[in-house]
């Protein structure tokens, strides 16, 4: 059973979004995603300043087993990336909702749309199983 904080919003592609309510959000991958990936050994971070559309590929996360693409759950501009992951990519496994965050984005619009709450995301996981 994976951990799904209620204050976050989720994409079906297994990213989470923390809305800071000031037009910016933090993005990472869910506990479910890090468990499925296994031991993360590398995160290819986006460039600060990159403009992302919703659903756009913005990076890659690699575990010992395989590489997985990351998809942006929001549209906006990358304003910060978690450089600590370059030296400690395993933080994504250890603390997916805290130290393992991946990027901060300034939203193109005022609101985040079309994302799931914890229960709805959990339902997509249950449907997979």
């Amino acid at each position: 059973m994976s951990n799904l904080p209620a204050n976050l919003r989720y994409a079906e592609s297994h990213e989470w979004v923390l809305d800071h309510k000031d037009g910016t959000v933090t993005v990472g991958i869910t506990d479910h995603a890090q468990q499925a990936l296994g031991d993360v050994v590398f995160v290819e971070l986006p460039e600060v300043g990159a403009a992302l559309t919703k659903g756009q590929e913005f990076g890659v996360i690699e575990s010992v087993k395989a590489a997985s693409d990351l998809y942006s759950p929001v549209a906006g501009e990358v304003i910060e990336v978690n450089e600590a992951l370059e030296d400690a990519p395993e933080t994504v496994n250890d603390a997916p909702y805290e130290g393992g965050w991946i990027m901060k984005v300034r939203l193109d619009s005022d609101t985040i749309d079309g994302l799931l709450d914890a229960d709805a995301y959990q339902a997509t996981l249950s449907a997979d199983e």
């Binding site: 296994g38 031991d39 050994v41 575990s63 010992v64 087993k65």
Partner: peptide
């Protein structure tokens, strides 16, 4: 392919 311990 792996057990709960994980590949690493």
């Amino acid at each position: 392919v792996q057990y709960p311990l994980g590949v690493k």
